[in-house]
Design a protein around this nucleic acid. Structure first.
Lengths: 192, 192
DNA sequence: CGCAACGGAGAACGATCGTTCTCCCACGGA
DNA sequence: TCCGTGGGAGAACGATCGTTCTCCGTTGCG
């Protein structure tokens, strides 16, 4: 017998892989059951509806994302390098073989208009990422308006890498970020 | 009787509004029929499958996008301002009441793994946009690596505006673009 | 050892979807 | 006027989906 916690984890992990790879609506609950190795009854006992499962998958991804970003930025010391480390983290992600874009963006586009809970879950993730970037920007001593600019670069790199299939979008975004950071930290030039 | 061309347009226009507002898979062909005011038989005579209709809708959107970008950039003279005009165009788009992100990104996330034709149609659109930005960058006399940076900013602004519901992502991206353009056009500073 | 509760496997159900087919009316040529 | 073609309205069909239910074996406890 499998206890509830590991069953939850198996279900969420299997559903995550399937949803991310094919899209949510293209994956039936029976496919999740087969991949997770548990019964449908068990799934519905732990997640009352597919919507609940989707939300749980997204929250699980949020935790993995937060841990990855935290580890990437903790590995370097300089606050400026922490900001750039975010884009290095993206670069490592984009070259994974099953990379298919940002699961939150994908889910929002597919379900944002249908499921308010999915929409708010995605919004919360994006909002917390923006907050984290804003904190790094603050630590680096740069003006606050740099933060949304870097966040936009990160978002754009994800969709560009996914659609064009070009992982170097991370490097291009990193270069742009480096320029923006440098300008933001440089004292205002004396007018000619 | 409606001739084929106007029927096509009615179908594509209605399907576009429905697909964009709710997502493709959430809209049945019967809903398209009701919104377009034509018979199902007619729809399937003009578009052999839903996949064909989706591709036609995306191609229709590509034409509208190209026309909008072209008009926005044609309204200004300076090549540098043409680049910034792209973001002004985005700003005007983001405040439309039914704005729900980039239809290409949304469709790719929802159907990219299921329909190769949809995937390539989306890729073609993004690729042609990148080419256009690259041409503007070239006209402005800036190095070529500026183009993907600006394109990434545009992509990120679209998803940020859609998910966070904050249309000012266009202005933030525009500010970042202005900085990147300025740096790219400025001669290399003499080292201190 | 007996029984009751639980979980697995999978059938079943109702809804919906993409697609096709049927029926019927309107209209244009001999 | 009569007939044949074409298109509209909508039923029909087969597949699939989310969700529930049935049946049965197992297991833990008295």
């Amino acid at each position: 017998m499998i206890d509830d916690d590991t069953a939850r984890e198996q279900i969420v992990t299997a559903a995550d892989r399937l949803f991310y790879g094919r899209g949510v609506q293209a994956v039936g609950m029976d496919a999740v059951r087969a991949a997770a190795g548990v019964s449908l009854k068990r799934i519905y006992a732990l997640f009352p509806s597919k919507d609940d499962l989707v939300v749980a998958v997204l929250q699980h991804r949020t935790q993995r994302w937060n841990a990855g970003i935290l580890a990437a930025t903790a590995a370097v010391g300089d606050p400026r390098d922490k900001l750039l480390a975010v884009f290095d983290f993206l670069a490592g992600w984009f070259v994974e073989e099953d990379f298919r874009g940002c699961a939150f963006i994908n889910s929002f586009g597919e379900l944002g208009a249908l499921s308010p809970r999915v929409a708010t879950t995605v919004r919360d993730q994006k909002s917390s990422f923006q907050d984290y970037v804003a904190a790094l920007v603050h630590d680096a001593g740069a003006p606050a308006n740099l933060a949304p600019q870097l966040a936009i670069l990160a978002e754009g790199a994800q969709t560009t890498a996914a659609i064009a299939g070009r992982p170097d979008a991370a490097h291009q975004a990193r270069d742009a970020a480096a320029t923006l950071i440098e300008v933001a930290l440089r004292p205002a030039p004396t007018p000619a």
